[in-house]
Design a binder for these strands. Sequence first.
RNA 1: CGGGGCAUAGCGCAGCCUGGUAGCGCGCCUGCCUUGGGAGCAGGAAGCCGGAGGUUCGAAUCCUCCUGUCCCGACCA
Length: 569
Amino acid sequence: MRYSKTLIPTLKETPAEAEVASHRLLLRAGFIRKLTAGIYTYLPMGLAAVRKVEQIVREEMNKAGAQELLMPMVQPTDLWRETGRYEKYGPELLRFHDRHNRESCLGPTHEEVITDLARREIRSYRDLPINLYQIQTKFRDEIRPRFGLMRGREFIMKDAYSFDVDDIAATKSYEIMYEAYKSIFTRCGLEFRAVEADSGSIGGSSSHEFMVLADTGEDTLVICSACDYAANSEKASVAAAAIDESEMLPLEKVETPGKRKVSAVCEFMAIKPSELVKTMVFKTDDETVAVLVRGDREVQEVKLKNLLGVADVDMADDKEVFDATGVPTGYLGPVGITVKLLVDQEVAAMKNFVVGGNEKNFHMINVNIGRDFEAAEVADLRQISPEDPCPICGGKLNLKEGIEIGHVFKLGTGYSKSMNAVYQTKDGKDQHMVMGTYGIGISRIVAAAIEQNHDENGMIFPMPLAPVQVVLLNLGLKDQQITDVAESLYKEMQEKGVEVLIDDRDERPGFKFKDADLLGIPLRITVGKSLTKNGVVELRHRKDGITEELAPENVTARVLEIIQSAING
RNA sequence: CGGGGCAUAGCGCAGCCUGGUAGCGCGCCUGCCUUGGGAGCAGGAAGCCGGAGGUUCGAAUCCUCCUGUCCCGACCA
């Protein structure tokens, strides 16, 4: 690759739209350009990095026994009506009509299409298990695309689907994918964690997310400091709180003029937020519920959604709270109100706590569950806080930010039932296939790798993901000796299979150094003055800046050695 | 969808308050010069001031509406 003939439009200044490091650097290094909101063109360097990820994913998927295919991007919405996701998936599914007025959509994921294929082509238990995958551009009309490749509307994804005869076999398929994912992300040189996840709108029983730890992550992870427990905070459970065995004290109503917020009430009554219970009101499509959590906790809405079995919950606003309960917000409590009461397990273990008095300017103290009100249900409903006890070992839980780069799901028979995908068993009976679905955000991995590996000068690619392995700077275009050595090194390395970008532009040295750093290419070879003076060229490692001086004839062997150990190690 | 920005040359921005010749830096083109960390000098090209209405003798600037885009929130295999 010759720099002078390759489109790598680097920028000295940061475009105003870029907030996070990966987005900023992808733009500055000329890897991507935006076409419109959440939709990007991959320029040669960006595409090269994407291809690297794809190749690793392909190799490991094939090794795990999966087969590659390619499904259409445009799908008939009829299929989505069959599974009910036409309604459930919402506006993220971009729908449109063709000239015959048939409704189609752009595929955000391919469960419907693959299940349609399976029901047509797979008939016998002899055909199972099977795992089919593709690497393809997906489209999701995200509410708010952001952070460049991190959350685009159009993005490249690997999606795989497994079909099995029964749950046991499906679990096996799931585990094979889980292990393949670990190999993939390890080979990509990423620092990642697998965490238990909520299975979301796609449905299904068991699910893990693979997360790259990074401050710019959009997900919050709960990680035990003592054992292996790790989960998405939407899903993370917490060890049950110890039951307070205190005697119940007599219920009292106290005046709390103008004290609506937890902090104000606590200050006024000289108590801690942990001695108070707040009553939060949520609406779903068909009911209004109140959730009780300790004053210093937050409701985890995903847990609430799952408990209620609904697609959506919304916090009620002041008016809605008043309409449902007749109480102004700030003074709402569980005693004597008529809405359904869902109680966080931690609250269920408390005694003699403080709640709203269900009357303006009043609270109640020494409130006790069972005596003063009844819970419709007690469940784990709160957001984990740092230092909470781990549900497995009781150790302290930590919260970290993460970027979701992969997700594995056990789907069960939800899709095969709604689409009637059956196979014939040994004894000739029809049985629904048991499915799994497995995604990897290919383009997001590129962004995540940059989030994890960069400095003030630019990107720092791990060798396996680098668009090219070596950048070779010719600092003496007009010097025959320098140019001869640079060109012959270029040729030699290419012949040995090294991916090399030769910077043969008529630019000043500083300019070339800056670009080389920005591009994040792991190895930089400089052919310049030190060749004419001392007969050596320099080999510099982008990651740590360590520079080796080598005779030109030793360079290729040394480079090969470094690449081998970086890719196999 | 709620809240808040922003929209002027390829990129980053000033000008708008207080209406009157459209500017700066970077980039780009030409030449000279320079060549180990984004050089210097000289010359040059490039803008429907996001769009549509309105006010005015006159609008980048004031008013109204629209569109796009970014940020926060909600949302998210």
